[in-house]
């Protein structure tokens, strides 16, 4: 979707806050949010529904809430949507009918869970790839609704395929809860193709884009 999250190339956001230090967290609630999110919490959702949920936030909230703050807001929306908690329970901060407590995990167990939780997003392709490494391609000049990973700044642009990764889950369908594979490519765009003649002639931007975002060059 053409939402506020699609930040690539937008202007007016000021300098990068480079001096944010090396600490992974600055507040205790950020630590709690990170730990909660590592457990997934909502088995029925997909990673793309989570991302799409962030995109559907009130735009002013998206821009003003910090990373972990957005996660908390989005998780509460996802809880309400899934039915894990009603809106009344969310506002009260407690459920009416508590379930038995979950079993506790140790640090050693969760470190091991990171290792074994290595997710493979590739799928067996159901059709041969239409493009090959070295091919020139043109990106679609419109996005698909409601969720897409083709950013606005790379639409309607010519690029060159530099890698083919087989088929990967298509996020546009993943946000609808469907598991559909589509060929995935890494595509290199010259900075001048994206940003015009003032860009450095040797610079490039690469994106991973799915075959359904691409057409042969005109």
């Amino acid at each position: 979707m053409d939402g506020i999250h699609d930040l690539g190339g937008k202007q007016g956001h000021g300098p990068v806050p480079v001096d944010t230090g090396d600490a992974p967290f600055s507040h205790d609630w950020e630590r709690r949010m990170w730990g909660l999110a590592r457990e997934g919490l909502v088995p029925s959702m997909t990673i793309d529904w989570f991302r799409h949920g962030l995109e559907m936030m009130v735009p002013a909230d998206y821009l003003t809430q910090s990373y972990f703050e957005k996660w908390a807001t989005n998780y509460l929306m996802i809880f309400a949507d899934d039915g894990i908690a009603s809106l009344q329970e969310i506002e009260a901060g407690h459920v009416a009918d508590p379930a038995p407590r979950a079993a506790a995990k140790t640090t050693q167990e969760v470190v091991e869970q990171v290792r074994t939780g290595c997710t493979d997003f590739s799928l067996p392709p159901d059709a041969p790839a239409k493009f090959s490494i070295g091919d020139k391609v043109l990106t679609l000049d419109h996005g698909t609704a409601p969720h897409t990973r083709l950013p606005g700044y790379a639409r309607g642009r010519h690029g060159t395929i530099i890698a083919h990764h087989g088929a990967h889950l298509l996020p546009d369908e993943g946000a609808k809860g469907r598991h559909v594979g589509d060929h995935l490519y890494t595509i290199s765009f010259t900075a001048r193709e994206l940003w015009g003649p003032d860009a450095h002639p040797a610079d490039t931007v690469t994106l991973e884009l799915w075959e359904s975002y691409l057409v042969p060059p005109r």
Partner: peptide, 25 residues
Amino acid sequence: LRVKALESLAIERGLVAPETIDAWV
């Protein structure tokens, strides 16, 4: 407060134990 609400709801629904959140941190 928002994270606290989320944490309480998740714990009370049996989705995660508070000690597990500590372990992740």
